[in-house]
Computed example of a mutant assay.
Amino acid sequence: MVTRWTLTVDCQDANVVAAFWKEALGYVDRPAPRGWDSWEQWLRDMHVPEEEWGDAAALTDPDGVLPDISFLRVPEGKTVKNRLHLDLQVGGGRDLDQAVRVERIRSHVDRLVAAGGRVLAEHHDGDRLDHVVLADPEGNELCVV
């Protein structure tokens, strides 16, 4: 039996980190639960104190295929390298023309830097760009391949 799963990211500012990943993945804000017109209405009906309303954010695949991602505010900051990270596979594969692949990778990297990410390293296989390692606004690593 397959187990349904989602991904949760601990962070200091759920809305900032969610906005970055929304751009990175092409996801959209998760709609309010069925029966509620808005998250604000749901939070109020669930008696969540208003000072906690910004403690979480949630994204969903607009096609409904890939897992949802939640972002939860935690008191501690990131202190070590991720043991798990996402590879954003935008390049099209190593068999694709290198110039096309590099353009796709660099274009996506540029969008993510504009969204608050930063480049940590570029990795090459000889003279060919293999992937770029980035950090999201709070330092969580990801690769653009």
Rank of each mutant, 00 (worst) to 15 (best):
M1I: 02
V2L: 04
T6N: 12
T8L: 09
T8Q: 04
V9T: 05
D10W: 09
Q12I: 14
D13F: 00
D13E: 12
A14S: 13
N15E: 07
V17H: 02
A18F: 03
A18D: 00
F20R: 00
F20A: 04
W21E: 05
W21M: 06
K22A: 01
K22L: 03
A24M: 07
A24L: 02
A24G: 06
L25C: 10
L25Y: 04
G26W: 08
V28Y: 06
R30S: 07
R30N: 09
P31F: 04
P31Y: 07
P31K: 12
P31C: 07
A32V: 14
P33G: 08
R34W: 05
W36S: 15
D37P: 09
D37I: 07
S38K: 09
S38Q: 15
W39Q: 15
W39A: 13
E40Y: 13
E40T: 15
E40F: 13
W42A: 13
W42K: 13
L43R: 15
D45F: 05
D45R: 13
M46H: 06
H47D: 11
H47F: 14
V48P: 04
E51T: 12
G54A: 15
D55C: 08
D55W: 13
A57L: 06
A58P: 04
L59Q: 06
T60C: 10
T60W: 01
T60M: 08
T60E: 11
D61E: 02
P62H: 10
P62A: 02
D63V: 00
L66N: 02
L66I: 00
P67V: 08
P67C: 00
P67E: 06
D68Q: 11
S70D: 12
S70N: 10
S70L: 08
F71E: 01
F71H: 11
L72K: 09
V74I: 15
P75Q: 15
E76T: 11
E76C: 12
G77Y: 10
G77L: 13
T79V: 12
K81G: 11
N82W: 00
R83P: 00
R83A: 01
R83Q: 03
H85P: 08
L86H: 03
D87K: 03
D87T: 13
V90N: 10
G91K: 02
G93W: 04
D95R: 10
D95H: 07
D95G: 09
L96V: 14
D97P: 03
Q98E: 13
V100M: 04
V100T: 11
